[in-house]
Design a binder for these strands. Structure first.
Length: 576
RNA sequence: GGCCCGGUAGCUCAGUGGAUUAGAGCACCAGUCUUCGGAACUGGGUGUCGGGGGUUCGAAUCCCUCCCGGGUCGCCA
């Protein structure tokens, strides 16, 4: 897909090539810094050195030799010392950007570079028999945003919620239920009761080796299909899925599949046999199946000495299944950076086994969330924050703010807006910065309504909608060139240039697996709109055609902001 | 100890395949507005870009080294 700025760069490049003054591979074009009054720059240092001239001389000669058609997107060429700066034609920029947005609507910014290739993305992945907490929200939110972004880029996305429903921890849960009884409550309450049993059993297990053995035994019985263990397990899975779905619905999260680790149970012996057969793994004296160091990474196990399987075993089986089933070009894991070594080992193992030589494994890691005192959140410390409570709290606070800000809304609308604003704040808190960073949970920051916040972005969108509403009936958007050509003022052009950058922001976000690039775009765009809003009257513009043109710009801003927010998983209310 | 990530303004963060004067938000101070939603806009920065070396005409960005914080290193996930 080629957007306006792509065509602009292409025009500059081909014009430079046409002069024959600079070899094509030395033409490195980049956006100039913000303080430079230009839209594209050619820093000539490297080219000048190769050609044996001074940079300023090269740029001057080029500036003199360059030719552009009268209706070119390139309106200005200025040699500025070693830089050759290019400026956009304001009229054509306005016409083409607003034309694109008006025509493409919800798909503005989308691309076809994914060519419908399949990507399987593994995210959220909470544990069964536990409530979702802040530890799960990052994977869930980042993963869902990546699904939106990569889908917009033309990839066929398959989201898989890789439920933690297997392994030794499940032995503990089953042993605990048998020891203390099955919870009688439902939903999150039932999960809370299960957690309580799990913690109690774990603590007692520390002191009593027999309980530890019992848990391990239960884990094995479950793996071997013991009916009683299976029934308890099934109940836990169903209870958990039902409770989690409420959170997913509120966050706008959905998956193509929810296989869970248990799904791969029947494939585990084959996987271990494969590794042994290929000589990648070997059996220890005590019976454990070990994979010795690959790519200088620490060695690891595929099977415990008691015959049980591990996380790695299941992840390897999962890779095999996904490759067979979906034929993806890429497997993405949105999992905390604590597990980085695990995924490097998995990647090395997949490579050594030559299972999927064409397929990329990508671990999108993210930092840990700490409480206000800088402590890790944990059940044991008693400072754990559960997802449902977090969402409820954020929405309740948003409700209070809505109450004071806008009493024109009906109670029902206030509730809906509060939900959108509160949830938006929670999502944005996870996406506005590079996800590798650790996060300190700061309620003030998270629910801020000013500055770089979800609420400010939503508010900007709502202001656009307000203007459009007041403009009267019908779609105010026009596309005729003469009208759109009127948008040449500085603040109008600044806003249009931001709108023009959305496609590139989406590409970069996808390429870096970095939703914050979109967040950043939304914020700078909302800022540009704020300035425009102050300086340029729309409804009371000097002429009817300027009014039309500005209304079109406002409509395009609303559309583009909505598209950007959607990629983050944030709703765009029209009133708030 | 090995490996990975982070260290940029009081706080939270962008910028890091070198290149024109290092940027935002919050907080603080001072302003704007009888006009489209003030959840707004404008102005105000003496920053050891963690320290020190090195490469370069030019380094927050590349190389080396050290310091600090977080993570991780076979029978958890």
């Amino acid at each position: 897909m080629e957007y306006v700025l792509d065509r602009f760069v292409a025009e500059v490049r081909s014009a430079i090539n046409a002069t024959g003054n600079v070899p094509a591979d030395l033409v490195d074009l980049q956006p100039p810094k913000a303080n430079i009054p230009a839209d594209l720059a050619f820093p000539s240092f490297r080219a000048a050195r190769e050609l044996g001239v001074t940079p300023p001389r090269l740029t001057q000669e080029l500036a003199a030799a360059l030719q552009f058609a009268p209706d070119s997107l390139v309106a200005e060429v200025v040699a500025s010392g070693p830089f050759l700066n290019f400026g956009l034609n304001p009229q054509r920029l306005a016409i083409e950007v607003l034309g694109d947005i008006t025509r493409m609507g919800d798909t503005y910014g989308h691309d076809d570079l994914g060519q419908q290739q399949t990507i399987v993305i593994d995210y959220s992945s909470p544990n069964v028999a536990k409530r979702m907490h802040v530890g799960h929200i990052r994977s869930t939110i980042i993963g869902q945003s990546l699904v939106h972004i990569l889908r917009a880029l033309g990839f066929a996305m398959i989201g898989d919620n890789h439920l933690g429903d297997w392994g030794k921890q499940f032995g503990v849960i089953i042993a605990a239920i048998k020891r203390y009884g099955k919870p009688t409550s439902e939903g999150e309450m039932a999960l809370e009761a299960l957690e309580e049993r799990y913690v109690r059993y774990s603590n007692e297990m520390q002191l009593d080796e027999a309980l530890d053995d019992e848990a391990r035994h239960c884990s094995l019985r479950l793996e071997q299909g013991d009916p009683e263990a299976r029934d308890l397990w099934q109940w836990c899975v169903e209870t958990t899925l039902e409770a989690n779905q409420k959170n997913y619905d509120r966050l706008g999260v959905s998956f193509e599949h929810t296989y869970g680790e248990s799904f791969y149970e029947s494939m585990l012996t084959d996987v271990i046999a494969l590794a042994l057969q290929q000589g990648i793994a070997q059996t220890d004296e005590d019976g454990a199946v070990v994979v010795p160091s690959l790519d200088n990474l620490p060695s690891f196990l595929l099977q415990r000495s008691d015959g049980g399987t591990l996380y790695m075993t299941r992840d390897l089986a999962t890779v095999l299944f996904r490759v067979e089933q979906f034929r993806p070009v890429r497997l993405i894991y949105v999992v905390g950076s604590q597990q980085e070594l695990h995924f490097r080992q998995l990647t090395a193992l997949v490579k050594a086994l030559a299972i999927a030589p064409e397929i990329e494994l990508i671990h999108v890691g993210f930092g840990t969330i700490f409480d206000a005192q800088g402590q890790p959140l944990s059940t044991r410390r008693g400072n754990m924050i559960y997802l449902q409570h977090l969402l409820d709290d954020a929405v309740a606070r948003a409700r209070k703010i809505v109450e004071t800000k806008n009493d024109e809304l009906s109670e029902e609308e206030k509730d809906r807006v509060a939900e959108q604003v509160g949830i938006g704040a929670v999502i944005y808190n996870d996406l506005y910065q590079d996800s590798r960073r650790n996060i300190t949970l700061d309620w003030e920051r998270m629910l801020a309504t000013e500055g770089n916040s979800a609420t400010y972005l939503q508010y900007s969108h709502a202001r656009c909608c307000s203007i459009l509403r007041r403009a009267g009936a019908g779609d105010p958007r026009v596309t005729d060139a003469a009208t759109l050509s009127l948008l040449t003022q500085g603040t109008e052009q600044q806003l249009i240039k931001h709108l023009a950058r959305l496609p590139e922001a989406i590409r970069e976000a996808g390429q870096r697996y970095a939703p914050f690039v979109i967040a950043d775009w939304c914020y700078t765009t909302a800022r540009a709109f704020g300035v425009f809003f102050e300086q340029c009257p729309v409804l009371k513009a000097d002429s009817p055609s300027l009014r039309d043109a500005r209304l079109t710009l406002v409509a395009a801003t609303a559309q583009a902001l909505k598209n950007g927010l959607h990629l983050l998983g944030i709703q765009s209310p029209e009133r708030m």
